[in-house]
Simulated assay, not measured.
Amino acid sequence: YNGRHAPGEHVRVFPLSNWTELDVWQYIAREEIELPQIYYAHHREVFMRGGMWLTAGDWGGPRENESVEKRQVRYRTVGDMSCTGAVDSDADSIEKVIAEIAASRLTERGATRADDKLSEAAMEDRKREGYF
C-alpha cells in the first residue's frame, strides 16, 4: 500500500490479489459457499478453437471447419462465451475441483482465456472498446 496520496484522490485496494485459484476454492470449501453449477463438470456441447473448448452461440461459433461435440467439461472462470473456454474435467464437487487444481500445471487464465492467447494487450483492447 502506497500511503502517499493527496486528499480527495481515490485509492484502489485489491485484498485478494495475491490469492491463487486454489486459495479461492479452499476458501469456498471452508466457508461452505454454494456456487452455480456452471463451475462444476457437466456434459456440454462444445467445439475446439485455438486449443480451447468453447460453447456454441450467436457470438460467432462454431465456424464451418469446427465441429460441435458433447464433452464433460467445466469452466475455471466464467465470462463472455466468445472468450472463455472450458476444460475437460470430471470435477463435479468442490473436493474434486480442489484436487484437480492442485494437480494442474495450467493457470486458470492460461487454460481458459482466449484473450490471453490472442495478444498480450487483448484484455486492454476490450476495455478500450467498452467491454468493462
Rank of each mutant, 00 (worst) to 15 (best):
F14I: 03
E21T: 08
V11K: 08
N2T: 07
Y75H: 06
A29W: 00
H5T: 14
D92T: 02
T84K: 06
A111E: 12
F132Q: 11
S82F: 10
T84Y: 10
A122F: 01
E31W: 01
D92W: 04
S82M: 14
D80P: 07
A91V: 00
Y39N: 10
M48H: 05
N65V: 11
M48G: 01
P15V: 03
R63K: 12
R126T: 04
E32T: 03
R105D: 15
I98M: 15
H5M: 11
L118Q: 02
E100H: 08
A91Y: 01
D115A: 04
A29E: 05
R49S: 05
S67T: 14
F47K: 02
E95D: 15
A122W: 01
L106G: 07
Y27V: 05
E66Y: 05
Y27F: 12
P62T: 01
A103R: 15
D58E: 12
G51R: 01
R30W: 05
E108K: 11
T84S: 13
D116E: 09
E108Q: 14
A6S: 15
R30E: 14
V46F: 09
W59V: 09
G85P: 04
R71N: 13
K96I: 03
I101D: 03
Y40C: 04
L35T: 08
K70S: 15
Y131P: 02
G3T: 08
G57W: 11
G60N: 11
W53V: 05
H5I: 14
I94D: 01
R4I: 14
E124F: 04
V68P: 00
V24W: 08
C83N: 12
V46P: 01
D80K: 12
G60R: 12
W25C: 02
H5Q: 13
